[in-house]
Design a binder for these strands. Structure first.
Lengths: 230, 230
DNA sequence: CTAGTATTAGAACGAACGTTCGATAAAGTA
DNA sequence: TACTTTATCGAACGTTCGTTCTAATACTAG
């Protein structure tokens, strides 16, 4: 919009999202702290329900002071979402480098997702829950990252399908899997549900066994096949 | 709270939630219409994001006029959620009466959930998405209905487990299933994903095959078992 | 038509909202 | 030391929020 930015905003814009020069300026560290506190507030009250005054209180900072670090509430949510999403995608790509077996690659996807999800549960709720809160430009960029993540997962499943000669609808399967995983923020209790690894193996068991069927036409009334076991 | 209610509120209170006398008074019909329009607005903007002025515009009514039908925005959300949730539970109980086979009963659960979910997608998003927006009294009552629904589903799975001698964690299984189903509102496109019956059979296939395993100890590293097929 | 009740709307309430401004303090540089 | 930049704040801006008051309409029974 406006051509020239005022003095404080200039710093923010320069380091904007691709912190080039030093990886850790004082500004970046403080901003990261603020994002952390804001995430907590969004987690508890939702994006619309959280006021800038709530956020300033959580950050131990004056209301006006916040605006030195970002220019609007919407941009703040954008920063939180972009960081979470980019990280989870980057980690997945990294972990996939070492694994070549198609089924194991799907397991890696599930474990990576749950690992990050449970370690950053509050941020991930904000990401899942407020995924259409951003308008226009901001929203489009996050949506693009999401589409990229989705594509990776579909490709993983397609590879598994090809390797094992399976037959299922990738779209439904991937989105069902995401549903299983993303819904966790509504119920997970670490004391009764265990850690990410445990949950990941349970969900992987359900999902992988569930999609492992070769050629059956319409899934309509499939034969009752009890306890295959081993 | 207050002992005596003013004249208009008296009518609202009398018919409150258990419309006794006539099943269809003019008041009830109008209220139902308003709830429908409000559902649409909540669906698009979220509970906090939707203003009473938005709701009045959608209902084709003045702002003040709305308050003749309910006493607060929170109570409006409560009415929407209670109606949706009660209906889905009632229909499930009804459908379960005719089915005795444990596996088929789980299929009925899935089909019933998706049936109502897709037919009332907007209301169900509002129910899923804003499930912690209600405070204290209102929230507690909705939470109680939800717990009842959850219990029914756990019992269905326990029955299946007993009948087939399966071994899996009911809690994780049920909540994973809910995740698969409740996430749908974020992605369902009737033109590419088909209707409730089709989706229900796909999800039932994944889920039922997924949990059908008898005795395997910790799910940790289970043996890679390729394409069992038939 | 009249009386009385059910329904609607205009205007306003105080509170809270996101954001901005100008001044000020703290930190860094010469 | 003096000067510049970075960081923070109190106070206020105009707008929108949920809700309420009061009066005016529509409707129905007599």
């Amino acid at each position: 919009m406006s051509a020239s930015v005022s003095k404080p905003a200039a710093a923010a814009v320069l380091r904007g999202d691709n912190g080039a020069s030093h990886p850790e300026t004082r500004f970046d560290r403080r901003l990261a702290k603020i994002l952390g506190h804001a995430t907590e507030v969004f987690y508890e009250k939702g994006y619309e329900g959280a006021s800038m005054r709530d956020l300033s209180r959580a950050a131990g900072m004056s209301l006006a002071g916040l605006y030195y670090y970002f220019e609007s509430k919407e941009r703040l949510l954008y920063l939180i979402q972009k960081h979470s999403f980019s990280t989870i995608v980057a980690r997945l790509k990294e972990r996939l480098r070492d694994v070549s077996d198609p089924e194991q690659r799907v397991r890696v996807l599930i474990l990576n997702h749950l690992d990050y999800f449970l370690a950053n549960q509050k941020a991930m709720k904000v990401l899942s829950h407020e995924d259409d809160a951003l308008k226009n430009g901001f929203g489009a960029e996050i949506a693009a990252i999401k589409r990229g993540y989705y594509r990776i997962c579909v490709d993983l499943l397609e590879a598994l399908k090809a390797a094992k000669g399976l037959e299922f609808k990738s779209r439904t399967a991937v989105l069902s899997l995401f549903g299983m995983m993303n819904w966790i923020y509504t119920w997970h209790n670490p004391r009764v549900d265990g850690d990410a690894e445990e949950l990941a193996s349970q969900m992987a068991a359900i999902f992988l066994r569930g999609i492992c069927v070769s050629s059956s036409g319409k899934a309509g009334h499939n034969k009752k096949r009890a306890a295959v076991s081993n």
